[in-house]
Amino acid sequence: MWATNAKIIGIVLGTLALYTLIANKIPQVQSEVPQALTLGANVTPEQLVAAGEKVYTGIGGCTTCHGLGERAPNLLTDEKGQGPIGARCGKREPGKTCKQYLYESLDNPTAYVVSGYQPIMPVMTRQLSPAQVWSVIAFLESQGGTMDVSASDIPATSPTSPTSTAGAGGAGGAAFAGGGTDPKAIIQAAGCLACHKLDGQGQVIAPDLTHVGSRRDAESIRKKILDPASSVTKGYEKLAGIMPKSFGTMMNAAQLEALVQYLAAHK
């Protein structure tokens, strides 16, 4: 019986060892907690690229869509014979450098939707801090191109973007449009028109807001801004989850009320 027991123990341990070994042989990806990114004035190109790669594969969530070949263009590998993003970004828009193109793509993604893909990318300058945005640009430029981002780029841009804490809703405190209550300025600064249409302007990805007041009252609009998942307009179920949840923490109470009343008046 001892021989049988030894065989059983051997089979059990061998099976466990096999599964553990296989699980350790595959690429190891750990889900990190979002960290504040601070880049000093003496940041080196290597540090920028390394930081950018971490944001790209981590908190930025870029790999959720890019690189899968279905939801968004490949950035790190060839895309339709044009090479990786660093090799093609400078030729994408006439008159724009690679750096400009990439920044605008992150700041206003619907402006440059690549043919064959849906305009589903969120405004990344609202999701990430300037340091994170510029480190991602540095990383993307380094993919087959020349990296020319420096520390001087970082404080000079996006003064209204969320600060160091990463992630949706993580910043708090920073208000759109300098804290002013002009609803049009808030809409412009928040990038609402990147998805919504209002008074003939903007995109048609998300519901048209021109007559939003006729289908939602002020309370419903307020709730929708603060918690986009609270209700989804019929016909837009596939885009549920795209609208950032962070607007409530990115404007002050007066701004929110001004925006809500403005939209509710659009009967």
Partner: peptide, 27 residues
């Protein structure tokens, strides 16, 4: 999205580490 883990173990480990824990539990 309601209560964040702020402990030093907040990061979710990779599958390699998880597999060792799973094997230990099974054992």
């Amino acid at each position: 999205q309601v209560m964040q883990d702020t402990s030093k173990y907040a990061a979710t480990p990779a599958l390699g580490y998880a597999s060792k824990m799973i094997s230990l539990c099974v054992l």
